[in-house]
């Protein structure tokens, strides 16, 4: 079971990973600084496999793929938001960081979460509630099922719409 770490609306990519740390190909150095300005105690409280939960517009701002990469490298198993900023959402799916859009979730910090990516069903064990995530467009679903765009294109060599 995974614990939820809940954040507010409009968490921008500068808060997920500051621009000064983005110029690197070393994923562990990204993980070392993830969320540090927003939540200085993040690295102490976060356990590999935990879930990040946010309100509206998570990941707004820059196009930096280092933001979802940093979360993935830190061991985040899933990000849930009411809705995501567009580029972050695409980036997350492309690099294989699971993301689910749940407009009506009522998850609180510390809640225990179970989820099934294939169905988009999320169970809040602490509150005994179940949420259904919005469906992905078919092409995104296919990319997610392959584990990201690199694997998808390696296999298909091109985009397939349906």
């Amino acid at each position: 079971m995974a614990k939820a770490h809940v954040y507010a609306d409009n968490i921008d990519t500068d808060r997920i990973i500051p621009g000064k740390y983005t110029k690197t190909l070393d994923l562990s150095s990204l993980a070392a600084h993830v969320m540090e300005d927003l939540d200085p105690s993040f690295s102490e409280r976060f356990v590999q496999g935990d879930v990040i939960v946010a309100g509206d517009n998570f990941g707004c701002g820059s196009s930096r793929e280092q933001a979802p990469l940093a979360l993935k490298a830190a061991g985040v198993s899933l990000v849930i938001a009411r809705f995501f900023a567009r580029i972050f959402f695409r980036n997350a799916i492309n690099i294989g960081l699971p993301v689910l859009e749940i407009p009506d979730h009522t998850i609180q910090s510390g809640d225990e979460i179970q989820f099934d990516l294939a169905t988009g069903i999320v169970i809040n064990v602490t509150r005994n509630e179940t949420y259904q995530a919005n469906q992905l467009p078919p092409v995104m679903l296919a990319i997610m099922q392959e584990g990201g765009l690199v694997a998808y294109l390696k296999k298909h060599k091109d985009f397939i719409l349906s």
Binding site: S63, R64, E65, I87, R90, N91, N94, I95, P137, V139, G148, L149, V150, L153, D158, F159, L161
Partner: peptide, 20 residues
């Protein structure tokens, strides 16, 4: 449109992009 690095890599490879 702005995209991330992996989407751009796909454009580099295929010359195309999927969009809604």
């Amino acid at each position: 449109c702005g995209v991330g690095s992996t989407d751009l890599a796909a454009v580099m490879l295929t010359g195309k992009i999927w969009l809604k």
